[in-house]
Design a protein around this nucleic acid. Structure first.
Lengths: 189, 189
DNA sequence: TAAAATTTATGATCAAGGACAAAAAAAATT
DNA sequence: AATTTTTTTTGTCCTTGATCATAAATTTTA
């Protein structure tokens, strides 16, 4: 079965009618390695399901060393500059494929239609927003409670696969330190 | 009209039937100044609408100087240890009334019933979760992009009313610094 | 309103992580 | 495989904010 159907079936029971309607709105896109597919100041018009690949969410800076990474998404997850998507205001973030990546996207307008016309749209939308809230909430706790070293150790423990795949310079800014500082943290462990 | 009805009417159009059902689930509670009405490790069983008063969300520590404040809520807003509420796991946070406070609460079980039985429940739930996500997302951006001084100035600009009402020792940990550090920040401005 | 308790401010010292520079290592390209 | 480019590490110095101690100001309580 389709990966995205498998994913959504875990969240809720979707009627064939609703599924067909939703599925008809999806568009498949292939993004080349390192390509930025949402640029800063653009309005995010999509929520995308990653069929394969890895995507990074980040805020660019004049000096590329000072970019800040806010998240990494892997296959079988949804990705979006969700705040820009929700508010339909220019995005502070960029989205970049770290490997060749295939996504299935739905537009803002089409998703609003799904919310209006399907039985299940708002339920899935609520559960998705709740899940994303929980992620941000955990992250806020980490940033305010833990030192950089503790944040690294926690990441190492909870998402070791991430450290295998993602360059350290991205990990460092995700943790909230410079690449140099992360290098020193790793040395003293 | 009821404050809470006015608030929800701004979000969506609610049928009388749905409203009556929801309203029948609400319980009013009055909380004394400084009282903690959700303790750490308790499972948050309520979402509450503040009719009057001010509520603080915080993580307590052995040394009370090291408590961390995560947010302040005022009248006509909903408040909850939302992550504990959503996951129904023990809360890392406490909720404290900073002034005498009156709230209208709905329990977890009753809200699930509202989600199932009303037309509008999941829509309001989705929009609420989305709004809370946006707040956390902004906060994550602030914490990673700005210095303590910049965070204070931003708060001063965006929520000046908050600085009138909330003791600085709570503001400081909300910004992510000690009370001493905030005092020095204020001096040099 | 006087006393006590709490909050805010100030001083001195310390530690974590930033900034800048450069070398070493690893990965990508020719 | 050799060269170029990118990533990671290491060195030195500096800044921000933490920590500990105490004083001043403000608020609460008796």
């Amino acid at each position: 079965m389709q990966q995205i159907k498998t994913y959504l079936d875990q969240i809720a029971t979707i009627s064939d009618l609703d599924w067909d309607f939703f599925y008809s709105k999806l568009q498949r896109r292939v993004i080349k390695k390192k390509a930025v597919f949402l640029k800063i100041n653009e309005i995010e018009n999509h929520i995308s399901f990653i069929e394969s690949g890895v995507v990074r969410l980040f805020i660019p800076k004049e000096d590329p060393e000072k970019e800040i990474t806010f998240g990494f998404s892997f296959k079988n997850q949804f990705i979006s500059a969700y705040d820009s998507f929700l508010t339909q205001k220019p995005s502070a973030y960029q989205l970049q494929a770290l490997t060749e990546t295939t996504i299935l996207s739905i537009t803002y307008a089409d998703l609003q239609e799904v919310y209006q016309k399907t039985q299940i749209g708002n339920l899935i939308g609520r559960l998705t927003a709740e899940r994303l809230f929980l992620i941000k909430s955990k992250r806020e706790q980490n940033l305010l409670n833990l030192s950089a070293e503790e944040r690294y150790l926690k990441l190492f423990k909870e998402r070791p696969e991430l450290l295998q795949v993602i360059p350290l310079k991205y990990i460092s800014s995700y943790i909230g330190v410079t690449a140099q500082a992360l290098s020193r943290i790793r040395k003293r462990i």
